[in-house]
């Protein structure tokens, strides 16, 4: 791909305004888990610009199909069937191919399959809640799953998480490592959630909200949501430690 011929320097610095703050007291667990000292900056070196490479042979045939990857033969998970798809690109609008995406979520009733979870909504015997995919050459990916339900959590006395899917991404460099959450268009819980509220910039929150995508919906089968993700990008490198053109 032509992208590989672009001379690449270090990763562009993260913009703090695009991310949540570490200390956001309405999200109560952040109070004692947030560093107080400023993070230390340094220019990225090979350790930050390289990262683990995952080949497509890592994946099993059902890894991106949460409807079936934990289900008994002939069964599938209960809940509204959806496709979640999108593209991963970098800040300079270059597609990120070969990126490993891992997802996890609650079932349609808002129940996670995890021993520390005590919510009274039942487990779905045919739903595990994990999946993974690797982006194609154009940066695209796709999962099939059920629409997760909202669930209550011990933060404020009556806090409910909006329906969401957790996303973990590996780009080409460890500096691009990102974990985030995808929300669903029109969910009235989004703007009441203190985890969402840890992001001060409203437009940064809006970019986490996946719109319904009727064009990719499969009639009589599954609705679709589109979630595009932007990872950090690499600047052009300085040539032999001199500014270009000097």
């Amino acid at each position: 791909m032509s992208d590989t011929k672009i001379p690449q320097g270090g990763y562009a610095a993260r913009q703090p305004g695009h991310h949540p703050v570490a200390l956001y007291p309405p999200y109560r667990t952040s109070v004692k888990r947030s560093p107080q000292a400023a993070p230390l900056s340094f220019p990225t070196s090979m350790g930050e610009e390289s990262g683990p490479v995952f080949e497509h042979d890592l994946l099993g045939p059902l890894d991106a199909d949460l409807l079936h990857n934990f289900a008994q033969d002939g069964a599938s998970a209960i809940g509204p069937r959806i496709i979640v798809h999108g593209k991963v690109r970098d800040q300079f609008d270059r597609p990120v191919s070969g990126a490993l995406i891992e997802v996890w979520q609650a079932n349609a009733g808002g129940r996670y399959r995890h021993k520390k979870e005590g919510y009274i909504a039942p487990l779905d015997p045919n739903f595990g809640g994990c999946g993974r995919a690797i982006t194609r050459d154009n940066g695209s990916y796709e999962f099939r799953t059920v629409l997760p339900g909202p669930y209550p959590w011990p933060n404020g006395p009556n806090d409910w998480r909006p329906a969401h899917i957790h996303f973990s991404l590996f780009g080409a460099g460890f500096a691009q490592r990102l974990i985030t959450q995808m929300y669903f268009e029109g969910d009235p819980l989004i703007w009441r959630c203190p985890i969402v509220g840890s992001i001060g910039d409203k437009s940064a929150v809006e970019r986490l909200i996946a719109p319904l995508d009727m064009n990719r919906t499969v009639p009589m089968d599954a609705r679709a949501y589109e979630f595009n993700i932007t990872l950090r990008g690499r600047r052009q490198t300085m040539f032999e430690n001199r500014m270009e053109g000097l």
Partner: peptide
């Protein structure tokens, strides 16, 4: 050069193990 904003991070939450 287009400079798109990086997707915002969110906490991995207590059930990160399910996915990772």
């Amino acid at each position: 050069m287009n400079d798109l904003p990086e997707t915002a991070s969110q906490t991995a939450g207590p059930y990160v193990h399910i996915g990772c």
